[in-house]
Design a protein around this nucleic acid. Structure first.
Length: 805
RNA sequence: GCCGAUGUGGCGGAACUGGCAGACGCACACGACUCAAAAUCGUGCGGGAAACCAUGUGGGUUCGAGUCCCACCAUCGGCACCA
């Protein structure tokens, strides 16, 4: 009998979908497990082979948890607002709603064809008004609590298309579509005050089980630093220049100041600046660059001295020049710094380039005061050339400097975060309308909550407006409304939300997906929350993952959700690359279509291959040959029927292997070491074929263990054994620890760390017994000839090492 | 540049807490079956005649290092409007 995967897979998929086999139960007395994968953006290209890697992994865990008696929620949905659908609409004049619907239908079929145990009854779609009603509701709560505000922020503006562009659409400073230069244009935008949560977003990481590298990356992104804000008086006017520094101990080494090109100082002192043309020209050039380009170091430092005005070092009272340079970012600290070239790499490069003085104010511990500085001294040491700080170690010097600054009212202690507030406005059509109204008299106000959802109007023209406004700005009728406060004529906000909005709370909706009174009921959130295990890509660590933690904390503060954190555990998968080791892309021609793989090899083979291809958390290149190998493995599983014999218990020669395998596969799944779990299956069937025998008890256990990986074939085989229940309805196999331990162990015998022989001893043999075996070894004796034994080391059960001369 | 990872046979990779480097699979070679091929099954498979040499490079710690420490090189992910 041969294995017809097409028929078998369709049969089980239809049964699962029809019967809702894997739907979560509403029985809130059961122990629960909530597994979450990042819901896909339904792109026109269809599913990527990368999606099933994450989905299969959590599917395996979800299936195992169900067999262990958990009420499992493993939901799916679509993050369907976004730029590509809109750009496609502009190009092809098809409404994004239509393409989105088509794409979702395609995705749904592809996901079903892979046999994931999703609860399809809870599917969500972020573009559905019944869904985004609550996204808008959350925004209004943010606004009411002072966390949404308007601010003027720069956007990328294409001088050719006259539209705002996403960073991704800007390539080397020009528009991706028309090639015209892109400039930074000031625009009034909605902002969300995530920085108010910076400290809590750091602190609460201690209570959750995220991979350490994820925690580190989030902490670094939030970028807490302790230092001081210090005022430097100016030679003109009464103003002073406020800078932020983490190293107030180095103020004596300040030889110049730098302000960011956007710093208000320049505008304020236009009259005093003697080289204004030069400064303005520099500002213009800087406006063309993104922050990223500016901080790229392979480019030379650039800058212009602002002439006609100087700063005064508050500790030395010396006058020092003020420069403008784009290596200082307006978005961090105060947008101005003190230049200490001796002890900061960037300042050092800048000073070298423009021949500014370099004064060392720290010497290495136990070292000499450096004469001519050829390189930056960034390490801590002992303060020198610093008056009252001299002789202090860096740590103490920082504290003393801050104390001095505060006592003399020169500035104050300050904690800073690199994290910036979240720019929440997009000048785009295909997003959630921001439910705000502007009235001449009352200013901005949210629309009444009873009016939610504020539906996105159906339009024909998705082209952005000439002035960079959203396409909605052209919908005169839609914009016109009444002020929710005074009832006078008012206008709607025309910007929409970023795609991050819908994905910041979707896991809550799954808990109670059809609730039309609340985003989810209290009971549902208390039972299901927090998500027990969330897997996704490392690329989402600092944006989506942080944004959704922020929203959740806010919802916790206003009493909507019962937990401080949305996700108890977070892991991540590696990317799948093309067979040439490069990222899959149309232009490189190395894209693999999942449909083709399923057609040729079947879903089970696809799933097993993606789990076997390499360590789950690391990138792995695609290989057609290796898939074939996994197909061969499943054929061999199918053909085990040929050597099947009766037996209600494991036969003695396989007993140890069975218990070890249950233990190994169970722990490998929990640790996401799927590749070694599959290797265990392969080793097992090699053993069965070598013995030309597998009994029924062994086969049943084997099918159970393999079921989460290859659910269709294993269910079919289980049914063919005459079982009345399915594997999904029966319990995960158990093992006996005592039966996983070998009676006899092998001890390698080394000479100076090099293995010379291996001796076999009983599992708890005393050292004397092992030594006797070592002495009896011919290989060891031969190697010992003419050498003197210095020492013998025996590590119980591990190794026997003889040190010789 | 900054932050985070990764580097082991021809290839993907395995190796618990510092204890036999190369499990498992692919590719390849040979053999069986076949008129033949495919499929399948079996055997071999880091280099070297051997002593030994081998886990990106150079140092170090240790009885013993792929694993720990220091310095370096290369590759990948993110850098806030792609998601």
């Amino acid at each position: 009998m041969s294995y017809n995967f097409k028929e078998v897979e369709r049969k089980w998929q239809e049964k699962w979908y029809r019967e809702g086999t894997f739907n979560a139960k509403d029985d809130y007395t059961m122990k629960k497990w909530y597994g979450l994968i990042e819901f896909p953006y339904p792109s026109g290209q269809g599913l990527h082979v990368g999606h099933p890697r994450s989905y299969t992994a959590l599917d395996i865990i979800a299936r195992k948890k169900r067999m262990e008696g958990y009420n499992v929620l493993y939901p799916i949905g679509f993050d369907a607002f976004g730029l590509p659908a809109e750009n496609y609409a502009i190009k092809n004049h098809v409404h994004p709603k239509i393409t989105t619907e088509n794409n979702i239908n395609h995705f749904r079929e592809q996901l079903k064809a892979l046999g994931f145990s999703f609860d399809w009854s809870r599917e969500v779609d972020t573009t559905d008004p019944d869904y985004y009603k609550w996204t808008q509701w959350i925004f209004i709560q943010l606004y009411k609590n002072g966390l949404a505000y308007k601010a003027t922020m720069p956007i990328n503006f294409c001088t050719g298309c006259k539209v705002g562009l996403a960073n991704e659409e800007v390539v080397n400073g020009v528009c991706e579509r028309c090639g015209s230069p892109v400039v930074q244009k000031e625009k009034s935008q909605w902002m969300l005050g995530i920085t108010k949560y910076a400290q809590r977003l750091i602190d609460d990481l201690d209570d959750i089980d995220f991979l350490e590298k994820i925690k580190i990356q989030q902490r670094n992104w939030i970028g807490r630093s302790e230092g001081a804000e210090v005022n430097f008086k100016l030679t003109e006017g009464d103003d002073s220049l406020l800078i932020y520094t983490t190293r107030p101990d180095t103020i004596f080494g300040t030889t110049y100041m730098v302000v960011a090109p956007e710093h208000p100082l320049i505008e304020k002192y236009v009259d005093k600046i003697t080289n204004l043309d030069e400064v303005k020209a520099y500002q213009g050039k800087a406006a063309l660059k993104s922050d990223f380009e500016r901080s790229e170091m392979n480019k030379d430092k650039t800058g212009v001295e602002i002439k006609g005005i100087k700063a005064i070092n508050p500790l030395t009272n010396e006058e020092i020049p003020i420069w403008v340079s784009d290596y200082v970012l307006i978005t961090y600290g105060t947008g101005a710094i003190m230049g200490v070239p001796a002890h900061d790499g960037r300042d050092f490069d800048f000073a070298k380039k423009f021949n500014l003085p370099i004064i060392p104010v720290i010497k290495p511990k136990g070292g000499e005061e450096p004469k001519e500085l050829e390189e930056v001294l960034a390490e801590d040491g002992i303060a020198i050339n610093s008056d009252f700080l001299n002789g202090l170690e860096t740590k103490e010097a920082i504290q003393k400097a801050i104390e001095y600054i505060e006592e003399n009212k020169l500035g104050e202690r300050k904690v800073n975060y690199k994290l910036r507030d979240w720019v929440f406005s997009r000048q785009r059509y295909w997003g959630e309308p921001i439910p705000m109204v502007y009235c001449e008299d009352c200013g901005w106000n949210p629309i009444p909550e009873e009016e939610l959802p504020l539906k996105l109007p159906e339009i024909q023209d998705y082209e952005p407006s000439e002035n960079g406004e959203s396409p909605l700005a052209k919908q005169i009728e839609w914009i016109k409304t009444k002020c929710p406060c005074c009832g006078k004529d008012a206008r709607r906000e025309t910007d929409t939300m970023p795609q991050w909005a819908g994905s910041s709370w979707y896991f809550l909706r799954y808990m109670d997906a059809h609730n039309d009174k609340e985003l989810a009921s209290k009971e549902a959130m208390e039972y299901w929350g927090p998500v027990d295990w969330y897997n996704g890509g490392m690329e989402h660590t600092t944006l989506h993952l942080l944004y959704s933690r922020f929203w959740h904390k806010f919802l916790y503060d206003i009493g909507v959700v019962p937990t401080k954190e949305p996700y108890q555990k977070r892991t991540s998968h590696g990317m799948i690359l093309g067979s040439n080791g490069e990222k899959m892309s149309k232009s490189k021609g190395n894209v693999v279509n999942p449909d083709d793989v399923i057609k040729e090899f079947g879903a089970d083979t696809f799933r097993v291959y993606e789990m076997f291809m390499g360590p789950f958390d690391q990138t792995a290149p695609w290989s057609v040959e290796s898939i074939r190998g996994c197909g061969k493995f499943l054929d061999r599983v199918w053909n085990l029927q040929d050597i099947l014999v009766d037996g209600d218990e494991y036969c003695p020669k396989h007993e140890k292997m069975m218990h070890k395998a249950i233990k190994k596969v169970s722990s490998d799944i929990e640790e996401m070491k799927f590749n070694t779990a599959v290797a265990t299956f392969m080793t097992m069937i090699n053993e069965f074929y070598k013995d030309k025998e597998i009994n029924k008890a062994e086969y049943k256990t084997f099918l159970h263990l393999l079921n989460p990986f290859a659910p269709h074939m294993t269910e079919e085989l289980y049914q063919m054994l005459g079982e009345s229940k399915t594997i999904a309805e029966t319990a995960w196999p158990k093992y006996d620890e005592a039966k996983t331990i070998d009676d006899e162990i092998e001890i390698p015998v080394q000479l100076n760390g090099k293995v010379k022989d291996v001796v076999k001893v009983a599992k708890d043999a005393e050292e004397a017994v092992v030594k006797a075996a070592v002495v009896a070894s011919e290989n060891v004796q031969k190697a010992l000839e003419g050498k003197t034994v210095v020492k013998e080391i025996y590590v119980k059960g591990k190794i026997y090492n003889i040190v010789v001369k």
